[in-house]
């Protein structure tokens, strides 16, 4: 009986030792994999997901890495990540600068997805939000330098909606216009054709994930002019007359346009500095 008890004791000790060993092994495994997964979850900024993919975390729970979207992409835009890349291994992604999304009207990649990781309620490719184009470098963008490159504007599948050209005065030459490409987030799908087409060695316009590209107003912010329009009248009570001592020539609420300096009637200069420049150019000739 004593030997039986002894044997049971040995068995119990062995069982406990083995279980502890296994449990610690599993903890180490889970820790290692978990830390690695955390790193991978932060998708690099150049990596774009196919149309219809939700937030990165939801996508990593829904995508089973079958590659059917890649197979049905007619332009070889999509590829599956290999383990050494910073994108979660086996998931579909693309780099706009290499091959952008051509925005197929029938969205074959979304149709091919067997799990719904790419959302099938996306029926209009113009509603896709793969990222947001940002004109990142105003120092090298040719349009900012005063040239009429316009390539990003021209290739944009939503030309005139997602990218518009806004004319501005060119203060360098004084007499030319700048045509500034401006991206509008309400229309940009993040297809990346602008980044792909940018003629610079390194694109001045890049598609970023929306979380990096967009600012967020504080929730309490109200835009006065919008509120005014909504209400149909100013929401601020009319100001009472101030009785502060203002510097000379300053008048409060001058002709309803707020605090401003009144132009002395006898000034030789026009309000518009361009007039001055034009006058001089005219005088020289």
């Amino acid at each position: 009986m004593i030997s039986m008890q002894h044997k049971q004791g040995v068995n119990r000790r062995r069982f406990l030792a083995d279980s502890t060993r296994l449990a610690s092994g599993m903890l180490l495994f889970a820790l290692g994999l978990g830390l690695y997964a955390r790193k991978v979850e932060s998708l690099p900024a150049i990596a774009l997901r196919p149309p219809g993919a939700g937030g990165e975390k939801d996508f990593l729970g829904a995508c089973i890495r079958c590659g059917l979207c890649v197979r049905d992409c007619p332009y070889d835009t999509l590829k599956l990540a290999t383990p050494e890349e910073d994108v979660a291994s086996g998931t579909p992604w693309f780099e706009a600068r290499k091959i952008p999304c051509e925005m197929c009207e029938d969205i074959p990649c979304v149709k091919a997805c067997p799990t719904g990781a790419l959302d099938k309620t996306l029926l209009d490719i113009d509603e896709a939000r793969m990222g947001l184009a940002v004109l990142m470098d105003q120092e090298t963008c040719l349009n900012y330098l005063g040239l009429r490159c316009d390539v990003c504007y021209r290739v944009c599948p939503l030309i005139g909606k997602a990218i518009t050209l806004e004319p501005q005065h060119n203060p360098r030459s004084g007499k030319h216009a700048l045509f500034i490409p401006v991206v509008h987030s309400e229309a940009c799908t993040g297809c990346g054709k602008c980044e792909h087409a940018c003629v610079l060695d390194e694109a001045a316009i890049k598609v970023l994930p929306e979380r990096l590209a967009k600012g967020v107003l504080g929730r309490h912010y109200r835009l006065g002019w919008e509120e005014k329009e909504k209400a149909g009248h100013s929401l601020v009570a009319p100001d009472t007359e101030h009785r502060f001592n203002l510097p000379g020539q300053m008048k409060y609420d001058y002709e309803g346009e707020g605090l401003m300096r009144k132009q002395p009637a006898d000034s030789p200069f026009s309000d518009n500095p361009l007039d001055t420049l034009n006058q001089r150019a005219g005088g020289g000739s």
Binding site: L33, G34, Y36, A37, V40, E41, K57, D58, L60, G61, C63, I64, R65, G67, V70, K79, L80, T82, P83, E84, E85, A88, S89, G90
Partner: peptide, 27 residues
């Protein structure tokens, strides 16, 4: 607990099959 399919990040079985079909890389 993570809400992601974590095992597929390293699963050698799918890594091999997927790699042969879609590109192996460091797999």
């Amino acid at each position: 607990f993570s809400g992601t399919i974590m095992w597929e990040l390293i699963n050698p079985v799918s890594q091999l099959h997927r790699g042969l079909l879609f590109g192996m890389g460091f797999g």
